[in-house]
Every structure is written in C-alpha cells, then in structure tokens.
Design a protein around this nucleic acid. Structure first.
Lengths: 218, 218
DNA sequence: GAGTACGAAATCGTATACGAAAACTATGAC
DNA sequence: GTCATAGTTTTCGTATACGATTTCGTACTC
C-alpha cells in the first residue's frame, strides 16, 4: 500500500491559494504576484499560473492581461448577481434533493440548526457561518445532479471571499434564517411538492439579499 | 486607428480549439494532444495547455493526469444533468429578462421563430439549431444578471459538442418547440407574472429532455 | 494462443529563460 | 506645485528544455 497518488503541483497551488482566499489571508483586492506565490510554495511559476487561472474561471480572482491577478470580491453589484444566482440554484438543488432526504439526515440538519440557534445566543458568527454551510450540505448531499451542486459550491466560494466584509451581517437576519431552516425541514418532512420547497429555499437566500439591500439603500 | 489589442495566444488557442469542438471538427472522444495542437497553431505548448484547461473548466474537454485531454460529451447521464441544469437557468434567465424585453425584440424573436418553422418544411436541422440559439439569445440579451447568462452559455456549449449525436433530434419535438416559442412570446407580451414565464421557459427545455428520455427508454 | 515482462516511443508536468508590456520613479519644464 | 516625459523596475506571456509517467509494441514464457 505504498499508494502515492501525489497531487500535481498545479493542484496543490490551486488548493493553497484558494484556501488562503477563503480563509481570508488574501483579502479582496490583494495582488497575487505569480513569482511571489511560486517562491512561497517552492514551485515554479507555471503551475501557480495554472492555479490562478482556474481560480479566475471560478470567479475568485480577477486576471488582467499583462498586469496580474487580484483577489476579486467586494462590488455590491457582484454580490447581488451571486446571491441571485445562488437563490436559483440552491432552490433547485433543494427541490431535487428533498425526495431523497431520509429522516436521519433531517434529524442531523435539525441538530445543526439547533446549534446555530445557540451560536446566536453566544454571539459566535464565525461558527454560525460554518454551521450554516453544514446545514445546507446535509440537505444537498444526495442531490441527484452534480452540475447543480457544483454551481452551489461555486457560489459559496465566492461569498466566502467576502466573509469579513460588511455584506454578511445584517441585524436580525440570522434569527430569521434559523426559523426558515426549521420551516424548510418541515416542508421536506411532510413531502411538500417540489414547487413549494423550491420556492421556500429560494426565498431563504433571497431574504438575505433583501435584508442587505434594505440596509444598504437608505 | 492602428488599434491593435491583439489577443493573447492562449486566448487564440482557446477560441480555436473551442470552435473546432463546437463545429464538430473535434468530435467527442477525440484525443487532444498538446504538442500537435501547438504545432497546428504555430504556438508553443504553454498557451495551448492553458486553453485546454480552460475548456476543461467549462466541461468541454476531459483532462486526465499524465494522460491528456479528450473532447468530452456523449454520456446520457451527462446529457440529463446538462439539460436539467439548463432548464433551471434558462427558466430563471427568461423570467428575469421578460420585463426588459421591448416590442421590437419580441418582433425580432417572432421572425426568427417563423424562420425556424420554415426550416422544418425544408428540413434544415443545422440552420434550425442555429436559429434556435438566436431566438433565445434575443430573449436573453437584456438579462440583468450576467452570471446566469454565463451559465446558459456554458450549457449551450456543452450541448453543441454533442450536436451530431443522436441526442438532439427527436421526431416531432421540433414542431412542438416552435409552438412553445410562440406561447412564450405571448406570455412575455402580456406581461405574465414571473413565475408563469419561468415555469413555461423551464418546461420548454424540460420537454426536449423528456422527449429524449421517452425515446431512449423503450 | 494467451499472458507477462521489458524496452521504446509518446506525451505530459514543470523548470528555466527571455522578450514584451505595464507600472513606477525621478527628472525637468512651465 | 503640477504636469509631462524618459528611464528603470516589476511582472507577465511564451518559448524551449528535460525529467517523469504512461502507453504501446515486441519478445518471451507457459
């Protein structure tokens, strides 16, 4: 079992840079200099370049010809686009998954949601965010269409790069979110029709966007 | 006006290979050898490799470590995933665009659809397919969310690589499609509510998938 | 004749190198 | 003090080169 299956360097570079973006080491606007990253990782620039372009395709970085790459993010318009798209694909993913979710998974999701409620009391927004992803991951884990699941994950990644920005935290929204989770679980338990579930899931995401917009406007 | 704005070679390579896939020169399963393509284009392998990886990210080619790239496609399961996803994103794109479509665009779309009907009489499936894209492009051209539009285009590209396969042509489906287009235009003209339009657009794509499945099963 | 082992060829993955474009800096004119 | 300009530096884009891995063909064994 000498099983190597070493990742290619470009793959490693991809994972490394992505991690730094998602965890917030590289914040939006950060200039990604190929040579510098290559040196950090001990690779040459070629695999690093490949990694960066892949991240560009996923929307995590912005690449400008002969200038270089920067961590993308920020722009409220972009946030709107991403949330709107997520609303749609998450709605679809939930509706497609719902009939395949068994009572065990429901119980698991409910436990996660309960923990989220506790996070609110102890004011732990970081853990709350992580649990929120867990919650939805449980719902989606049997999604029959991997393409849609992939789109969901891409959206999450984009949002992750904005984590510490002002976008995420709107007063009162978190409490509402926990309530919506429970309502969603009940719809799934009761085998509500796909349309109803899709609409509820879509609304769940849309409400977060609306809360942000309402706060941002005035 | 010496306006140069030369495309980068990797960009040219991307466009060239993509075109060959979409137009059917490289059919699914075709082995894309970096060195060979590079020689054809007169570039070195580096930009070609970059282009191929970009196409991989879009799902047009499949890349295997230390082995190489092949034009992807075929698999009925993959077709199902793609069509299902397209159904969702096209539905959303149509619903979002509908309020922004003016009567001029409607007339244009209707003219295209009329031409599609004529194609059926002269049995010109190639032109029919092209016009079909034109039709939907008119509907989407003012789509307020570029992310969603991008997803639509990605789906189209995937399907394009399957063009000459059995997937596309199901007896009678084309006639139905033209009728559905007209119905869709009327919904938009009458400013039907977003839900109705979304459902109709979604169904339009789903029906093609269903027709294929019904034919494939028995 | 089928299957295995080994060697040659093909192809990929990555490093290094260098020309080209952009960004920065310093200098000078007004 | 501001703007324009020329020179320097940084960083990217691509070519070339070579080691690593896989594939293919051939010979050999049973």
């Amino acid at each position: 079992m000498t099983e190597a299956a070493v990742e290619s360097k470009s793959q490693q570079a991809y994972a490394a840079v992505k991690a730094r973006i998602v965890e917030g080491t590289y914040t939006p606007g950060y200039r990604l200099v190929l040579a510098k990253i290559a040196e950090d990782l001990g690779f040459s620039v070629v695999p690093v370049r490949e990694a960066i372009r892949r991240l560009e395709a996923e929307g995590l970085v912005k690449f400008e010809r002969n200038v270089g790459a920067t961590v993308s993010g920020i722009d409220p318009t972009e946030y709107l686009y991403t949330m709107q798209t997520l609303s749609i694909v998450e709605g679809a993913a939930t509706a497609l998954s719902a009939p395949l979710i068994d009572s065990v998974a429901i119980a698991r999701a409910r436990a996660v949601n309960e923990e989220m409620r506790e996070c609110l009391e102890h004011f732990d927004p970081v853990r709350f965010t992580a649990l929120n992803q867990d919650f939805h991951s449980v719902l989606f884990e049997h999604c029959p269409n991997p393409h849609i699941l992939d789109l969901v994950h891409r959206g999450w990644n984009r949002l992750a790069s904005l984590r510490s920005s002002t976008f995420r935290f709107v007063p009162g929204r978190a409490q509402e979110s926990v309530r919506e989770h429970e309502a969603l679980l009940q719809l799934i338990e009761n085998a509500a029709d796909a349309d109803t579930i899709e609409k509820a899931a879509r609304q769940h995401r849309a409400a977060t966007l609306d809360a942000y917009l309402a706060q941002a406007k005035p």
